[in-house]
Each structure stands twice: as structure tokens, then as C-alpha cells.
Design a protein around this nucleic acid. Structure first.
Length: 474
RNA sequence: GCUCCCUUCGUCUAGCGGUUAGGACGUCGCCCUCUCACGGCGAAAACAGCGGUUCGAUUCCGCUAGGGAGCACCA
């Protein structure tokens, strides 16, 4: 029996949960859930300057919205600083780390020298073998790892393959700062170890950190977890994802009317594939997801594909849950309050009735809201410019005549109104389209809508006749 | 500059020595049709370049070019 899988998502709370972080979380979650393992959550808040409480809230909220849950209590890294210090002291006592008294100026000088010489090793190890008695006064020392001087550090990465660094290129990293606080490098290693993490899955911006962290693992005599460094997501132009592109918080995607299922499906297929399959239910992605199938090249973020997927999930959602999503999202979208104010038992029932038609046409919940305008609109309707253009003196007369024809319909339904309208068109000698378009405009204020007879049915006889009267002339 | 990673249609990708290089999004036609969608059918569209290895390279190796990440007492 193999040891249970433990993954973790470890965001630093310096901002919202961005799309790249969401994908990392998703991958960790899928891997754990597909193998009966656990996914842990650790907030890396050791940067006291930049970590904020609202950011923590935004990250938790984003994960929750995406449907990603985690096991056990959330670990806050800062709270574990004492443990990190102990490990640093232990390394010091064992002679695997040392005090470094180099000043900021010295460090800067070393960096500049290294760069000038074309070397990547920034710190020259000058305090590595010096006695503490030589320590200058007035400088609080850092604790540095006594990293191996020669040989290689090798990471067998599940995504990147075997990656090798020459140890001569890696310098003695700082474990504990002068102020006694641990560095990220130390904290991550200690926390992952203490939390029993077996698989580290994170962005490949951490790839080089894996090498340095491995040196810490080795100094400590701990087993290094399985490593997987997934490629970053780029903007549509191939450059680093910026706010201008899609590096938005997941809350922004919610506000744009995307549904979590679609975003998850989009994200899982970004860099990962399973043959030719495009659509994955949650169960399927959990079952099929695997690390070696992740590609090694960065993927560009493509809103068009996300939108297509979103449309797919909206079309396939059942009508009642769509009504619920519709209502829920109103709190997050611009002017959502206006529609919310109009929601009552009647309009809710109309929305539900129209949903089979509406959902065929919407790629986002925003479009769903827009296209449902005719249900919530007050008379007289606000006309879109293209719709207003269709209301000529001629069509207004036509609307008036059609209204009279429809007034005769007593059993009001899509079928009866369609029959009446078709008969009217035939009698008048015009094509159905020539009647349907003005009718649509008068009833919805738009040039596009669900099938017009469905609109008639949803709105009901009285409201339809009134709206037609609003636009008709005799 | 240094270290490391990457490179198949516009985009996401399949491919793991021999394929008419497949799928999806997007684009463009046609059909359906009261509009818009949906759906159906079809089209255009890719192995970065150059050298090897091999009977044979998209596939293996090297170089070049291009892209990316990292280079803190940040995470």
C-alpha cells in the first residue's frame, strides 16, 4: 500500500486569487481528489508588509466559488515562525548553516561583481568558515545554509522532467533574516515537511526554488516531495499575464457572468489534455487528471474559448438552477440591483418559463440577464437604436393591424398566437418575417430575442396587447 | 548578463520513427429559420530554421533564432 497523497495550495495573500493561482489550486485539488488524498491550504503570510486580511478573504471566497475545497484547518505560515527559527538553529548547531554578518552594502557589491563577471552565484560565502569572534558589532547576522560547493542538484520533476543545476551556480541562501524571521525558502520546506505534503504542484516560476529547497531538505535529512512545476498562463499576446489581459481575480470572472464549471473546464484544459476530450465533468476531470500529461509550454489565455465553454454549460444547465444562478449573480454584476428589484413571483415564473429559449442564446450570465430584459421591462419599452430604426410609420400601422388580429385570440399560447400571426401575414400578403420583426421590436425593444411566439406566451395576452398599443399607430 | 524552461493550424492541443498530421475554439461558406442563437454539413489554416542519427524524421541529438521564468535578509 502506498502512502496517501497530500497536496497543498499555498497562496500568498498579497492580492486576489488570480487565474494562474486558481489553476494551480485546481490541479492540486484534482490530483488529490483523484487518488483519495488530501489537499491542504496554507496561507503564506510571512511578508507582513504586503499580506492583507481582505486578500485572504478574497482567496478563500474565490476557491469556494470555484468549488475547490480543502482538508483540515488552514495553516497560516507566519504563525509557525517559531518552528522555522528552531529548524534554522538546529542546522546551525549541526554545522550545516552559519551566521553571516555581511552588510547590505557588501551584498550589493557582491551582486554587482557577480554580474560583471557573468556569474550567477551572488553571495561568495565569505562568512562560511569564519569564527563568530570575528563578527563585527552592530550587525544582526542572518543564518545561511552551507550549500554544497560542487556536484549537482537534480530535480526529477513530474512535468519538467530531469532538471540539473551545477552547485557552483547556487549560493548559500539565507534561512533566517537578521530580524529573526524565516525566509520563504526555509518556511516552505519546513511547512511542507511538517504538513506531510507528498506532492508539490506549483507554477514553474518556482522551478529554481525547487533546487534550493532540495538543498535544505538534504541538509535536514528529509525526503523531498514529488515536484511538479506547471507552466504559467500568458496573455493573449504571449506576454506575461497582466491585469490588462486576464490576470483578474476569479471574482471578476464571476462578475463577467462565467459559471464555475466552465472556468474549471477551461482551466483544466489549459496545459493539460486527455486525448481529444474537451468537455469534462468534475468527476471526469478528477478521474483522468494526471501530472505527466501536463505540457511544458506556457499557454495563452483565450477568452473566446472560455466563452464558448461557458455557453455550453449554460445551455446544458437545468432551467431551475439557471434561475438560481441568475439571481445569485445579480449581486456581482453592474446594475444587477435594477433587475433584482423587479424580481417577484410573477417575473421569476416568467423567467423560468422563458429559460429554455434564453439559455440557448447566452454565452454568459450577463447575456442571459440582457436577453431577459423583456420580462422585467416597464412600459413603454426603451428601444435599442436598431430596434427604434425598424419602427417606421409603415411598420407602426402594421403593428396596429396585427394587434387587432391578436386581440381576437382568447386562448393565449405560443401555438395560437403563431397561428393568428401566420394567418394575418397571409391575409396581408407579407412574409412572416416582415411581421415578426416589428412584433419583436414592439414586445422586446430589441431586434433579437427568443422565438417571438414564445415571447408572446411568456408575456401574456394583456401585456402583449398593451406593448403593441404603445408602438402602434392607426 | 547569468541559470533554467519552452517552440505542431490565429488560440488550446493530439501525436510518443512510417499518419491524407487528428480534435476543439475562432474565422469563412451552405443548410435549418420569424431575428439571434442552437444544431447539421463543409472549407481555409500548423510541425520555427539549419545540421546530423536513421532505409525513413513532427517524433531522437546538436546548433541557431524566437518566447518565457528566475536571479532579494519578496513570496
Amino acid at each position: 500500500m502506498t502512502a496517501p497523497i497530500v497536496t497543498r495550495f499555498a497562496p500568498s495573500p498579497t492580492g486576489f486569487l488570480h487565474i494562474g493561482g486558481a489553476r494551480t489550486a485546481l490541479f492540486n485539488w484534482l490530483y488529490a481528489r483523484g487518488r483519495g488524498g488530501k489537499m491542504l491550504l496554507r496561507i503564506e503570510d510571512t511578508d507582513r508588509e504586503r499580506s492583507t486580511e481582505p486578500a485572504i478573504g478574497a482567496i478563500l471566497d474565490g476557491l469556494k466559488w470555484l468549488g475547490i475545497d480543502w482538508d483540515g484547518d488552514t495553516v497560516y505560515q507566519f504563525a509557525r515562525a517559531q518552528r522555522h527559527r528552531e529548524v534554522a538553529e538546529q542546522l546551525l548547531a549541526e554545522g550545516k548553516a552559519y551566521y553571516c554578518y555581511a552588510s547590505a552594502d557588501e551584498l550589493k557589491e557582491m551582486r554587482e561583481k557577480a554580474r560583471a563577471e557573468g556569474k550567477s552565484k551572488l553571495y561568495d560565502g565569505r562568512w562560511r568558515e569564519r569564527a563568530a569572534s570575528e563578527a563585527p558589532s552592530g550587525i544582526k547576522p542572518t543564518i545561511r545554509l552551507k550549500a554544497p560547493l560542487d556536484g549537482e542538484t537534480v530535480i526529477e520533476d513530474q512535468v519538467q522532467g530531469r532538471v540539473v543545476w551545477k552547485n557552483e551556480n547556487l549560493d548559500d541562501l539565507v534561512l533566517l533574516r537578521g530580524d529573526g524571521n524565516p525566509t520563504y525558502m526555509l518556511a516552505v520546506v519546513v511547512d511542507d515537511h511538517d504538513m506531510g505534503v507528498t506532492h508539490v504542484i506549483r507554477g514553474d516560476d518556482h522551478l529554481i526554488n525547487a533546487a534550493r529547497q532540495k538543498q535544505i531538505y538534504e541538509a535536514l535529512g528529509w525526503t523531498i516531495p514529488s515536484m511538479s512545476h506547471i507552466p504559467l498562463i500568458h496573455g493573449p499576446d504571449g506576454s506575461k499575464l497582466s491585469k490588462r489581459h486576464g490576470a483578474l481575480g476569479v471574482d471578476a470572472y464571476r462578475a463577467m457572468g462565467y459559471v464555475p464549471e466552465a472556468l474549471r473546464n477551461y482551466l483544466v484544459r489549459l496545459g493539460w489534455s486527455h486525448g481529444d476530450q474537451e468537455i469534462f465533468s468534475t468527476e471526469e476531470m478528477i478521474k483522468d487528471f494526471d501530472l505527466p500529461a501536463i505540457g511544458r509550454s506556457a499557454a495563452r489565455f483565450d477568452f473566446a474559448k472560455l466563452e464558448n465553454l461557458n455557453g455550453h454549460y449554460i445551455r446544458h444547465a437545468d432551467d431551475q438552477s439557471l434561475v438560481t444562478m441568475f439571481e445569485d449573480v445579480l449581486s456581482y454584476v453592474p446594475n444587477g440591483g435594477d433587475v433584482k428589484a423587479k424580481l417577484n413571483d410573477t417575473t421569476r415564473a416568467q423567467l423560468r418559463q422563458a429559460m429554455p429559449q434564453l439559455k440557448e442564446r447566452a454565452k454568459t450570465l450577463i447575456e442571459l440577464i440582457d436577453s431577459s430584459y423583456f420580462i422585467f421591462a416597464d412600459r413603454p419599452l426603451v428601444m435599442e437604436p436598431k430596434a427604434a430604426a425598424l419602427l417606421t410609420p409603415e411598420t407602426r400601422i402594421l403593428i396596429g393591424k396585427l394587434r387587432s388580429a391578436l386581440e381576437a385570440v382568447t386562448e393565449w399560447s405560443a401555438a395560437t398566437t403563431e397561428a393568428a400571426t401566420r394567418a394575418f401575414a397571409e391575409e396581408t400578403g407579407v412574409k412572416l418575417g416582415a411581421v415578426a420583426q416589428p412584433l419583436r421590436v414592439a414586445l422586446t425593444g430589441k431586434t433579437t430575442s427568443p422565438g417571438i411566439f414564445d415571447v408572446l406566451a411568456v408575456l401574456g395576452r394583456q401585456e402583449c396587447l398593451a406593448r403593441l398599443a404603445d408602438q402602434a399607430s392607426v
